[in-house]
Design a binder for these strands. Structure first.
Lengths: 198, 198
DNA sequence: GTCTATACACCGATAGAC
DNA sequence: GTCTATCGGTGTATAGAC
């Protein structure tokens, strides 16, 4: 086999691990399954990583760092804040529908991290990142709609994260698109009432 | 050891399994960990159950059937619908704070069920039960507040389930009580606008 | 650096004595 | 019915040839 620098091997293994977790769940993301997905030998795994735990930690850090603002609103002037927010949440919903396994993987990684005190900070960082992205979206939305947040943006962002999480979890279970759209509308409604026109 | 009828052994093992899942997560809920918690021999497990899968399925069915309406509003006349709903959601939040491991276990069992086509119906049944309980709460709340739902109650109930799920997941990660209360207020606000005074 | 082969722990499940 | 002992399989991790 070709000689591949350790950092590249680590990256390839992390990508393979994400695919395995997405498709089969974290419980099935064994070292053997991951190296098979990456088309490597088992020994190569332990050359690149000290342990499976080390890879999982790195995987969580990677997906968190890579997370993009799926809810980021388009700049369409003339719309009210409520409409802008609803469009943003619906955009996230389309993103969820396009790749449900990825969001399911993110949820599993969160819960995995929650089960170990050592890894709890990883889950916290993940949600801090979500809140940060939500915050930017809400600030942009208010700016476009010419509104001002009455509560701290960080708090409104935290509420938005909770609402999208709930939308995700329930939709992954029942795949009820109409219900998900109702959640989006209700969430946008509630959030828009946390701001005043300027 | 004493001779215990099979149904009692099954019940004891299910209770032990729930404790193990709550405390250590479903990944650690091995047959050995469960029998240790139940103070039984490993062979007793396979006398009562054909397989570990059979017990997990039974466990999910049991916790779902046992689920109570934690959000069920108190009957306090004179309050508006929004206040009644907020009080109900805050009641659920206190329930969550009192026993976080149980709600975390429920989330894990849901995601576990989602990973296997055979068990997906169990997750669906779980959420159908949640929606049913939410529906009863919403009907009672509207009746007490003398209001009428403008949308189908089932849909409003589905939205309520999503909101409480999001509240649960985010709070389990960051344990931010103030943020959770803001989610509760926003959810109550959004839901109350799905009804009209009568 | 990469491989095959293997050590060792733990898993679910069963055999067979009592 | 209940137990101890054990099987076959799979998990993580490592040894040692190349």
């Amino acid at each position: 086999m070709a000689r591949i620098p350790a950092p590249e091997r680590r990256a390839a293994l992390i990508e393979a691990a994400l695919r395995v977790v997405s498709q089969h769940g974290i419980a099935q993301a064994t070292t053997r399954a991951i190296v098979a997905e990456a088309d490597m030998s088992l020994a190569s795994f332990h050359y690149a990583f000290d342990s499976r735990d080390e890879l999982i930690d790195e995987l969580i850090a990677t997906v968190v760092a890579r997370e993009q603002a799926a809810v980021m609103p388009e700049v369409v002037p003339g719309l009210g804040l409520r409409e802008i927010l609803e469009a943003g949440i619906l955009r996230y919903f389309e993103h969820l529908k396009a790749d449900p396994e990825h969001e399911q993987a993110m949820l599993e990684l969160t819960q995995y991290a929650l089960r170990s005190p050592d890894r709890h900070p990883l889950a916290l960082a993940q949600y801090a990142r979500y809140v940060e992205l939500a915050e930017r979206s809400l600030e942009l939305a208010a700016s476009v709609a010419d509104a001002a947040w009455r509560v701290p943006v960080a708090l409104a962002a935290r509420v938005l994260v909770a609402f999208t999480d709930g939308l995700t979890l329930t939709w992954l279970v029942d795949r009820d698109d109409d219900a998900a759209r109702a959640v989006a509308a209700a969430a946008a409604d509630a959030l828009s009432r946390m701001a005043d026109p300027r």
